[in-house]
Design a protein around this nucleic acid. Structure first.
Lengths: 329, 329
DNA sequence: TTGAAAGCGCTACCAA
DNA sequence: TTGGTAGCGCTTTCAA
């Protein structure tokens, strides 16, 4: 390993001078600068980030905490974060929490131990206790917060739009799948849909669910058509659940969207590949990741930010699990 | 931030002693050990990993380099790696290379600058030049290598099995989608299929493809049925491409699997959710990730490893894009 | 059984 | 314009 001393010796200068050309701070004569640069190249030197981090008490690392990267919604988020961070010279320390407070705590802890300069967290389970003692900026992603900067999609509006489209497209007996109670975005979209349906003149039922796993979703789907066989419209808490409902409906011989309409949430990549392809409310996951990264960077640089809570719009993606309507479609 | 000095002062001992109880090295009297432990708890002390890393020239970080986490095959891999690493106390520095040599080089570089103790790389594009100067162990994942330890699925066998099943299930005019030339696993499965088909008595064609992106795959799919309209069996280079072929076949009114059989590769999560669900060759992605992590850990600990090249078996997953056969099915 | 002190590679201060 | 040096928080000799 070649250190700053080696470069200094080889170039016939002090380590201080090498440090100066390295960081472009202070005065360095052009000639010596060139000489130092040359020897750095010659020796293939590159600074030890750990030593830098120790002295400056800050690294170029940021911590990214997700619930579970194998949930198809999160890779896009992660990629958005990474692309923005990479562009700005930051690297990612990455962990999955599985929405388990201990794991979350543990990762936050090791992030701090490694001098990360900022954290992006997309977890939902825990209260703010994990984060309040931190001296570094934190941005919550896919989750709102009064206490911390956050980037999220307008879940409530999304729920409303979904309900609206479903009613507009003629469903009369709607079943609403309420997502896990501890997942805030799921509750937002549920509330949005609920409010709309409450003041509309259609029948509706609510089924409470507790996870987003496909295997669980298959059970809710069965329960749904068991309990409410005359359902002609399903508002699912996300695309995974919607997919399970679609499967079950098909299995039962229902015609989609003629007998039953289905609207999902998220617009994960596979939703357009289903048959019939899934109508859904799209969250701009990649953009959310990018926005969160950009916000965190501003915060870390102590640049003024007027908007600490960035809400991104959701859009209805009309595909084949909803019917056509004559006007405005 | 509370440091080892603070603990030492508060406990009335030297930093050396605190370090000893921290690392459980050397002699420490039970009483003082207890006292130190108590003050550590009291002050809520936890060691600065950066300082440790600087002194010991090794961290608890490992670098994970993937082509692209938004490709549905990789989240499972990543999760396997993470779960095993997390269990052993290692954390992940994570990056996507997009199969671009510069990005790959850049990430490897910053991994090293941050004192990672090992690297897992699932990239395919570049030669070994990036890795040969490293003093830390490297494990290649989803890729074979003569020079480095590696964990991969038996792609060639997978290709063979796919071809075999397709012929066994009655396809006579098979089209083989050859994956990107620079993606080694794609070439392995292609070779396996090619060898089998060559010595079987069915007609077959080969179409060269250059990416795994769905949008590109849609073009190959169109080209396929344009150029070889009498194709009655498609061996796709992976499930994404298979999905595009499935869509196109359906769009053209072909009956699946009666008119055309399709077999994919990977068994990404969405493959079972398609309609009809996709028959495919399954790679055990999660296990591959775990194996790679376990192997890397052994290597880092300089434990003896008899198997530096771990090949995991692939399996044919019979679903709805292949026909039934009478015997042995 | 304990403590003093050197040193990991770097930055930044102060002096020259 | 440059160099000497203290010190970031920790581990590990070496001596007591």
């Amino acid at each position: 390993m070649v250190t700053i001393r080696d470069v200094a010796k080889e170039a016939g200068v002090s380590v201080a001078t090498v440090s100066r050309v390295l960081n472009e701070t202070g005065y360095v004569h052009e000639d010596t600068r060139k000489r130092v640069m040359d020897t750095m190249k010659e020796l293939n030197y590159s600074p030890n980030e750990v030593a830098r981090s120790l002295y400056k008490k800050k690294s170029k690392l940021i911590g990214l905490l997700l619930p579970d990267i194998t949930n198809p919604f999160f890779p896009q988020l992660a990629r958005g974060v990474e692309d923005e961070m990479q562009k700005q010279g930051f690297r990612l320390l990455f962990g999955n929490s599985d929405e388990q407070p201990e794991k979350e705590l543990d990762y936050i802890h090791t992030f701090v131990q490694n001098n990360v300069v900022g954290i992006i967290s997309a977890t939902n389970h825990t209260s703010k206790t994990n984060y309040q003692d931190l001296s570094i900026p934190v941005v919550f992603l896919d989750r709102t917060s009064n206490d911390y900067p956050s980037v999220y999609a307008d879940g409530k509006e999304g729920g409303k739009i979904a309900a609206e489209e479903m009613v507009r497209r003629g469903s009369k007996r709607i079943t609403l799948l309420k997502g896990p109670a501890h997942i805030q975005p799921a509750q937002d979209r549920f509330q949005g849909a609920l409010e709309y349906l409450s003041q509309s003149n259609v029948d509706f039922h609510v089924i409470a669910t507790t996870s987003f796993a496909f295997e669980d979703a298959e059970k809710w789907a069965k329960e749904l058509f068991d309990t409410y066989p005359d359902t002609d419209g399903v508002l699912a808490s996300n695309d995974i659940v919607a997919t399970a409902v679609l499967h079950e409906a098909l299995r039962l011989g229902r015609s989609i969207p003629t007998d039953v309409q289905i609207i999902g949430f998220d617009d994960i990549p596979q939703s357009s590949l289903l048959f019939p392809s899934l109508s859904t409310i799209r969250q701009p996951a990649y953009e959310m990741g990018k926005e969160a990264a950009a916000l965190l960077i501003k915060l870390m640089r102590k640049e003024p930010v007027q908007q600490k809570h960035i809400q991104l719009p959701v859009t209805f993606i009309k595909r084949e699990t909803t019917r056509e309507v004559e006007i405005n479609d």
